[in-house]
Design a protein around this nucleic acid. Structure first.
Lengths: 361, 361
DNA sequence: AGCCCTTGTGTGATCGATCACCTGAGCTTA
DNA sequence: TAAGCTCAGGTGATCGATCACACAAGGGCT
């Protein structure tokens, strides 16, 4: 980095130039411009894909960019444009683990669009959370917010509608909880319920996920709609919170003795709780009750009985959520094709579901 | 953008000022300076906690800052200082779920120090990953990197030592895999092994986590050291990858029939695999073999047998990792008190461990 | 008193990209 | 042929905070 070590024949012709770059610093548009023989403004146009440029000029700039290994300084860009090119991901509280691949997918989609993903955790009570959120919401600081749970203090609350930046919840709702692609995520539940109905099941119970989560609400809505559509009976909808405990409690307090023969658990962890709770009472799965979960958690493959579940393409779900948000940012219509169920989700039949038991009459 | 719509009574008193602020824009140090009756530079000093300021001046500036709700523009600061105030968190590949609270803790610690946390996923093959990493490593873009797995292409590889930014792996290693606080995280394993030895166990097996992870290597090292220290026998160390499958495979291929009576599984998920695998062969836990895991996964509380494990303060672990990195960034010595085992981790005895079986001989 | 040093604050330049506006070449049209 | 238009690209200001340096006030020392 000590001075100007010409690193290619291209430089030689320009030896009259007064120091190609400041020592050790990454190249700027000015150096690119000098090398390409254009003005810095033309380089800026190039970076913005300005269509009015002559192809010839474009090529020269592109070569200079490549040769110098130029990368735009995002801070400078942010300062001038007053857009941060950042998306904040709000971590869910009260959830022990989150899918890594969903974050990966979101990060990848963001990077491809020139955005970066900030992790933010909202801690403390409602007031602290609101204050923290507000500090994020300076458009200087964040262009948009991606969350997987509702941001309000109460479950199901819509986010305040006067937020200065767009917010997407779980890729499914916008900041006012208007659905963007109705029930796209949960539609596989309908197929599963139909399958169980074909196996003779008539009386169902659903143990929900945490109601703050859009996906939990979706699954419940699809459950209720499908039960109605197929003329089945919903013995109960038990409000859970994604926890194994909520599954266990549902099993021991509600499901056992209810007459239900099939249980839709909002997640595999809930399903584990349901099955273990039923087993603790001597109720066998699937002989007496069929249970299925959601997530294709690896433990389910080795569990006894092996768990019937729905696998989810987390990576793609994350990407899609970011795409929805980016579309909102650009002010585009949100008619992005909703996440196709067949693309994302897949039913995995294992041993925790089976034919409905014969009525012992 | 059409002029200056005065937006509140507070502005009225200052009508003599030549445009308190440009309409709709957040306040800058200049406005703060004007309100406080000092120069913008003094405000800057205030923001940097310059000790040479007179208390009186400090107070005036503080009041102005509070009154205007001033917040520094991070992009401008970044541009001038050439430090991004960002920490990149590299998501582990090949791990399904990661602890949310660890991220929360890391994000909180970063925010408190004026940093933000970027999520980055390195995708693709080794070359692509390296290229992506390199693009992150412009100091303009990222001040430091926090990872939980090694960044090299091969397991256990140290990261290239010429990285231009500090890297901390799991809060335990720096970029050259020099240990920062030896075995701090895993030390609880020693107590657990001692406990099992007290119960009569002599022959142990360890199923490791993925060797890319510092925590997996630490746990293994502590296992081996403790076995030696207590004069016990390690029948085998089975290389796993945190997966339930690796636990199942270890159980069915190595543990069964090995004569070992106690198994240290690197995580609860591995432990589930071990137990389910043993059970599938008719081996009972803990009657024939004791098994303990690590993480205090909620499912373990309801599992049969209820899983003995070690609970981890994820939140604090995340904070600590960031603090280590920040210390590196400031060039401080890393003699931050290593994460005290007693603070972070706690042994939780449940039903999957018990006295060693009597030799049937 | 006069000098120097310390302490506290102000002035102007700077970081790199973009924006608003300007210039000049080439072409069309009256 | 001159006015008018379009197309390509250049000039200088700008975003907000920090840095280097200058300067003023006050205190201690000879």
């Amino acid at each position: 980095m000590d001075g100007d070590d010409a690193e290619g024949a291209a430089d030689m012709a320009k030896e009259s130039l007064p120091r190609p770059r400041t020592a050790g610093r990454p190249p700027t548009i000015h150096e690119v411009a000098r090398l390409a023989g254009v003005s810095h403004q033309t380089v800026s146009r190039f970076l913005r894909d300005d269509p009015t440029m002559r192809p010839d000029t474009t090529r020269r700039v592109a070569r200079a960019v490549a040769e110098l290994g130029y990368r735009p300084n995002l801070a400078a860009r942010t300062m001038r444009t007053r857009r941060s090119n950042r998306i904040a991901v709000i971590l869910p509280r009260s959830t022990e683990r989150m899918p890594t691949r969903m974050l990966s997918g979101a990060a990848a989609a963001a990077h491809e669009a020139g955005y970066r993903l900030d992790v933010v955790s909202l801690e403390g009570d409602a007031a602290e959370r609101a204050a923290h959120l507000e500090s994020l919401l300076q458009p200087e600081s964040t262009d948009g917010i991606l969350s997987f749970t509702s941001l309000g203090t109460n479950a199901g609350d819509p986010a305040p509608s006067d937020f200065p930046v767009p917010i997407v919840i779980d890729g499914v709702y916008d900041d006012q909880m208007r659905s963007l692609g109705v029930f796209a995520d949960a539609s596989m539940a309908a197929d599963m319920l139909r399958h169980l109905a074909d196996l003779g099941h008539r009386r169902f119970i659903h143990v929900t996920g945490h109601p703050d989560w859009a996906s939990a609400r979706d699954r419940r809505a699809v459950y209720e709609a499908t039960i109605a559509e197929l003329g089945l009976e919903s013995v109960a909808v038990v409000e859970g919170d994604w926890s194994t405990k909520s599954g266990w409690d549902a099993a021991t307090r509600v499901i056992a003795g209810s007459g239900a023969t099939a249980v839709f658990a909002a997640s595999d962890h809930v399903a584990f709780g349901v099955i273990l709770g039923l087993q603790s009472l001597g109720i066998q799965v699937p002989r007496d009750v069929s249970v299925f979960g959601w997530d294709d958690d690896e433990v389910g493959r080795y569990f006894r009985p092996r768990l019937t579940t729905i696998s989810v393409d987390r990576e793609r779900q994350g990407r899609q959520a970011v795409r929805q948000l980016l579309a909102l940012l650009r002010g585009e219509s949100l008619q992005v094709r909703p996440v196709g169920a067949a693309d994302l989700n897949r039913i995995i039949l294992r041993d925790s579901t089976g034919p409905a038991p014969r009525p012992t009459a």
